[in-house]
């Protein structure tokens, strides 16, 4: 990707790219950049999506180290039920 002229705007530029890449399309990711390291956090729905985030981030910034700190949300059956009336 073409990096913004000022590094202050790089995390948001990466976040936008991740939202618009159909392999990711996730709006709830946090992106931080320190030196040549990109850290991505947030919740994702599957291990495959987590892997895609790493791949896409590396494609975007091949010269950066990508640290994927996203969490895969569990999807097991619930333990019980809640009476609401």
């Amino acid at each position: 990707m073409t990096e913004p002229r000022r590094p202050d705007y790089l995390p948001e530029a990466i976040r936008e790219k991740l939202i618009h890449d159909p392999r990711v399309a996730e709006q709830d990711l946090r992106v931080e950049v320190r030196e040549h390291r990109v850290m991505v956090g947030g919740n994702v729905s599957s291990p495959q999506l987590k892997q895609r985030i790493t791949e896409v981030a590396k494609e975007l910034l091949p010269d950066y180290e990508v640290v994927n700190e996203t969490t895969v949300v569990p999807a097991a059956e619930p333990d019980g039920e809640e009476p609401v009336s």
């Binding site: 949300v73 569990p74 999807a75 097991a76 059956e77 619930p78 039920e81 009476p83």
Partner: peptide, 17 residues
């Protein structure tokens, strides 16, 4: 789903009430 962190949640409603 990221809030309930399960495949679904179940809510019961008492129709008689």
């Amino acid at each position: 789903q990221p809030v309930i962190r399960h495949a679904y949640n179940v809510y019961t409603l008492d129709a008689r009430r």
